[in-house]
Amino acid sequence: MIERTPVLDAVTHTILALGFVVAVAPFLVVGIAASHDLFHVNLVPMPLVPGGHFVENMTAAWIRADLGVKLLNSLIFALGVAFGKVIVSALTAYAIVYFRFPGRHLLFWAIFVTLMLPLEVRIVPTYAVAANVLGPWQGILDILGVTWLAEHFAGVRLDLQFGLLNSYAGLILPLVATATGTFLYRQFFLTVPDELAEAAKMDGAGPIRFFFDVLLPLSRNNIAALATIMFLWAWNQYLWPLLVTTDPSHATAVIELKRLIPNEGGIPEWNIAMAGTLIVMLPTLLVVVVMQRWFVRGLVATEK
């Protein structure tokens, strides 16, 4: 807009500078606190000039929360969810958009409903399923009377048991079972010109060929956006990993933060707690900074 607004410009710069400080300050505070020794970190207010104990604190936090293993677990978990989502939702969206089969609308709505209820609100029964993932299928057999028939006529007791607690599958699968990605792909597939499918058919390509050679290469942007969002989302999960991993060897880095809370009594070791926090948030911060374009795009697109 071509108008001179010196006062407004000054206000704009001030407010934005304030916003900038508020957004960045916690990162700096965490970094600076992680560099102090026990005495300086507990001074009120904490000195803002970094101390010289950074490496020492990082090492202490790393060892105390066993972060090497935990970060690796987080990485496997987050990558698993990201890939799982990218693959499963692309397949489903393709089925919904490019085929006419009986029950297609029912399937669409069945997937759509999963958007509404996040894992956190159905946490207790989902946990029971993870404890025995074949439980739902056993339930179906019970309801159909197959269990009863088998027991009476064949003398076999059907008792399907397979636990997913303390496993990567248990961490990953329940988080893949929602529809966020499916709709992202669906919206995109709908914008792909019909002529492409027609041309492919005319050249003799079947549905599988078309999917892998035409649609997926076209979806590269969406795949990158979805993978970024899902990676961050999974990495930052807290409640589900907390419940599913009772064995520390499968715990993720984020839930290990709880162990770093300084306990009451004694001088709180905030320097080590902040060093741990820094280690846990650095990977996601890096992903956001490096993948910013995909991240923002994915955010705006998945929520539509």
């Binding site: 693959i87 499963v88 939702s89 397949l91 489903t92 393709y94 089925a95 919904i96 490019y98 085929f99 006419r100 089969f101 399937l107 069945a110 997937i111 999963t114 209820l117 159905r122 029964p125 989902t126 029971a128 399923v129 993932v133 439980g135 739902p136 299928w137 339930g139 699968l173 329940p174 893949v176 079972a177 929602t178 529809a179 499916t182 499918a197 058919k201 079947g206 549905p207 599988i208 078309f210 999917f211």
Partner: peptide, 26 residues
């Protein structure tokens, strides 16, 4: 669209299994 609708159903199976097991059943 493609005529081979069974292929479409096959593509949707992973998600159907997942949402049944981890969403609708719970």
């Amino acid at each position: 669209t493609f005529r081979q609708w069974w292929i479409g159903v096959a593509f949707a199976v992973p998600q159907i299994v997942l949402i049944f097991t981890f969403f609708y059943w719970p």
